[in-house]
Design a protein around this nucleic acid. Structure first.
Length: 835
DNA sequence: CTCGTGTGGTAGC
DNA sequence: ATCGCTACCACACGAG
């Protein structure tokens, strides 16, 4: 919306609304009067909507009053009551209950954005785009079937629409998308404006944010028949999807008073309620939130004094103004209140609070003070601020109120300073930067140190001095950590296809980028975590596994990316049924129009011709062999790395972790060294093969697909081409796994495994190795190792424990090394195919 | 030391 | 039931 429109609506807040509440006076006459008044004071009006009669049904953003003004001032008729049928040409609504849907089925029912866009573009834009019953009219039967079945059927990640459907309902996805799009818009809007400089560092920062935004919007658009007496100020209200282990996205201040917090599960929140008080749960209103946010940003951007309106999130912005833009504190306060008033007005009742100070960190803290429904100005200047006020200000914050201090940092601070409760305590305790840096690390230590003095660190200040650069996208990724339940690799491959398609066609296309590097991160159920986590379809406790791959040539080819992903999946030791989450990132984005890119391609093709790049080992030349060395060799290699490191974070029992570390060092000192030598050897071969041959991307793709097919039959039990091998009369590897696990757990406590059992187990392992299924042995070894670690602090001295240790080190690991030709065999196959 | 890879942490509701 | 995302910085570690 342009400035002009804003000024028009701004003028409305001078009290003329009383006219329109008086229903006895003929509305139309009033509207004309209203319009004339505008004209007489020299305000611009238009005839854009001439001949149109518009009626507003229910809650909308912008609100009814704003729409009225927009209509009237642009020459349209505003209908206050829909008494005479057919008199309205357009009905504006955000959503319609089924009954109204029927009633209005012959009207043009559109969402308010239509009007906004019409005025913005100064022409009548086609209403069909904005129709809210369009889909019903066009394909009523299909819509009903799909929506009703979608409501009833449980979430299924094999459904081709799963990804889209999931994202549609995910608040965090929405938040991320909104943020990205706001940043993009910022770049477009401000790219020609000169950057602010450090030297002229006398800025006033306004941090503006809605109070419990989601909850407010959900309340405003609630089904009033369902909640006739709901009181936003008194009744605790939360926004969520479900009932028990559903996340609370937002809760109102009545709920917060009872100790309920965002992110809490509904069940937990209910336990905090006093007797007789009930918790009201409201559904998300994503679309209306989006509309409210548009109004919010439009208003902020229309305010001349703001040099920048920096987006923080959908409902939160940092406004930067020069210190001398306002005469004094009084006028500044007036401005703040005017902004608050206008936003409340134009969003039909959403409240913002404002924190004002001269650094980012102080503005943010001031905002916390301002909430709910207020303005707080904090002056860090010692002279003008009473020392008592200072102490009181800092004393009213908890440690994690400080930006940058989250769960983990809080824990570190608590551990080091058990007595420190408030930021004021911390200010007094930590006088020097060194002690903070020693606990929190270099950067974070400095950041906290500065923040306690009310100053921004350089990284935070970038948003002021170099926002365009900061908002430029450097990576693209998607995460899915909910609803992931797969049976086998076939299903996972399909899902990876969908992800790849989404990333390529939705993200790369939107930002017009190519990627040259992919990271795949998998979440695998922890060995000791329940198969069904507490949260329905949740991920539960998981171990993360990541791997990344360079593509050599930047690409946006979905096929190549999908193939690479499938391939990468197989380099990670995560069986399909244990998978609980997937994350895919494109790390090194390349602009296709960038001349640098053509250089990359040129350089690459030259590289293939001969190994002329002796000085610098080029990433692109290496990446070509990556499929080979990744598939086979990286598996054990990676495992080594991961197992060595991950226990530190997995379970935080300090007593336990020392023993575990010692043990795992020992475990893997033997395992990977030999295999790694193999890898290096084979790498040389691979290089030769590649160097002797010029490759095209398509050939590469073909080869990888075949490599995958090879692996597919080989790596996972579900579609093994080999004859089944039995252990204790069981052939299913997963079941054998859990059987062995139980067996180990039981016998650790006592004298170790029975000789006869052990004999059969060894026989089984031998067979696995002999039939090229050494990866199963690896998994069993891993599992046993984890079990040992888990039980080390309790049974570390038991006879059985030592017994199992010996079995693992003296038998199982050498077994894997003995059969390391397995890895080579496969690679040989690959190379042969390649030539 | 520099580079690349993998991991951890934080923010918004 | 339930929708636990995503960009980006900082860091540790190993290879060269």
């Amino acid at each position: 919306m342009s400035n002009k429109d804003n000024k028009v609506t701004e003028e409305n807040s001078t009290g003329r609304y009383s006219y329109f509440y008086n229903k006895k006076i003929k509305q139309a006459e009033q509207d004309i009067k209203f319009r004339k008044q505008y004209e007489t004071i020299g305000k611009q009006t238009s005839q854009l909507l001439k001949g149109l009669t518009i009626y507003v049904n229910g809650h909308t953003i912008p609100g009814r009053l704003q729409i009225h003004d927009m209509v009237v001032l642009n020459g349209g008729n505003f209908l206050h009551h829909l008494s005479s049928k057919g008199s309205a040409t357009h009905i504006i609504a955000s959503s319609l209950p089924p009954k109204k849907r029927l009633e209005f089925k012959n009207y043009k029912v559109i969402n308010p954005q239509w009007l906004v866009d019409c005025i913005k573009q100064q022409k009548i834009v086609p209403w069909q785009e904005y129709s809210i019953i369009k889909s019903d009219i066009e394909q009523p039967s299909i819509l009903k079937i799909s929506s009703s079945s979608a409501n009833k059927t449980p979430p299924n990640c094999n459904d081709p629409n799963f990804l889209i459907d999931y994202f549609k309902h995910s608040r965090l996805h929405h938040l991320s998308e909104w943020k990205a799009s706001l940043r993009q818009k910022f770049i477009e809007l401000y790219q020609d404006i000169p950057l602010l400089t450090h030297s002229n560092s006398s800025y006033t920062i306004l941090h503006i944010d809605f109070d419990c935004f989601f909850a407010t919007v959900a309340y405003l658009f609630r089904d009033k028949k369902k909640f006739p007496t709901l009181d936003f100020d008194k009744d605790p209200i939360v926004v969520c999807h479900g009932v028990k282990n559903s996340d609370i996205a937002s809760c109102n201040y009545a709920a917060r008073k009872l100790g309920i917090k965002n992110g809490m599960w509904v069940g937990t929140a209910e336990k905090m309620l006093p007797n007789g008080i009930k918790l009201t749960t409201l559904p998300y209103e994503f679309e209306n939130i989006d509309n409210g946010s548009k109004a919010f940003y439009t208003i902020l951007q229309s305010i001349e004094q703001f040099y920048y309106v920096l987006p923080v999130s959908i409902d939160e912005a940092i406004c930067v103004m020069s210190k001398n833009a306002m005469e004094n504190k009084q006028t500044l306060l007036q401005l703040c209140n005017a902004v608050r008033q206008r936003i409340k007005h134009e969003t039909s009742g959403c409240i913002v609070s404002i924190g004002v100070s001269d650094s980012l960190v102080l503005a943010r803290l001031a905002l916390k003070m301002a909430k709910p429904n207020g303005v707080f100005m904090f002056d860090n200047d010692n002279e003008s601020q009473d020392l008592n006020d200072m102490n009181q200000f800092w004393g009213s914050f908890k440690l994690d109120d400080l930006p940058g201090v989250g769960r983990s940092t809080l824990k570190k601070l608590r551990y080091k300073y058990p007595k420190v409760k408030t930021l004021q305590d911390l200010r007094q305790t930590c006088q020097d930067i060194i002690s903070l840096q020693s606990i929190l690390g270099n950067k974070l230590g400095e950041k906290v140190y500065l923040a306690l003095r009310g100053e921004d660190d350089e990284e935070s200040a970038r948003i002021i001095y170099d926002p365009i650069n900061m908002f430029q996208r450097k990576s693209i990724s998607i995460d899915i950590n909910w609803g992931i339940r797969f049976k086998d690799m076939v299903e996972i491959d399909k899902f990876l296809d969908i992800c790849s398609d989404y990333l390529v066609n939705k993200k790369l296309a939107e930002y017009n980028k190519l990627t040259s590097s992919i990271t795949l991160k998998l979440m695998k159920r922890c060995v000791d975590a329940p198969v069904d986590p507490p949260k329905y379809m949740g991920m539960g406790r998981c171990d993360p596994f990541t791997t990344s791959s360079r593509l050599g040539v930047p690409t946006n080819d979905g096929g190549i990316i999908a193939t690479e992903l499938k391939h990468m999946f197989r380099t990670l030791p995560v069986p399909p049924v244990e998978l609980r989450g997937i994350s895919i990132q494109f790390n090194k984005l390349v602009d296709p129009d960038d001349p640098k890119n053509s250089n990359v391609k040129k350089g690459l093709s030259l590289l293939f011709q001969k190994d002329q790049v002796t000085t610098t080992p080029s990433p692109s030349s290496r990446s070509i062999e990556s499929p080979l060395h990744n598939v086979e060799s990286n598996d054990p290699h990676r495992k080594y790395k991961r197992l060595k490191r991950s226990p530190v974070k997995e379970r935080e029992d300090q007593l336990e972790s020392n023993q575990r570390n010692a043990f795992q060092q020992q475990f893997f000192q033997e395992l990977p060294t030999q295999i790694r030598k193999d890898v290096q050897h084979d790498l040389k071969i691979t290089r030769k093969v590649n160097d002797s041959k010029l490759k095209r991307m398509k050939e590469e793709l073909q080869r990888r697909e075949n490599a995958i097919r090879n692996m597919n039959s080989h790596f996972m039990n579900s579609d093994s081409i080999f004859v089944p091998i039995k252990f204790q009369n069981e052939t299913n590897f997963e079941k054998i796994c859990s059987m062995v696990n139980d067996w180990v757990r039981e016998t650790i406590k006592e004298k170790g495994p029975h000789e006869r059992d052990l004999h059969f187990f060894k026989k089984y392992l031998n067979k696995l190795c002999d039939s090229d299924r050494v990866h199963f042995v690896l998994r069993l070894a891993d599992m046993i190792s984890v079990t040992l670690n888990l039980m080390a602090h309790k049974y570390g001295n038991a006879e059985g424990f030592t017994e199992w240790e010996i079995i693992l080190i003296k038998f199982i690991i050498p077994l894997m090394n003995r059969n390391r030709h397995t890895f080579r065999t496969e690679r040989k196959l690959d190379i042969e195919y390649d030539i």
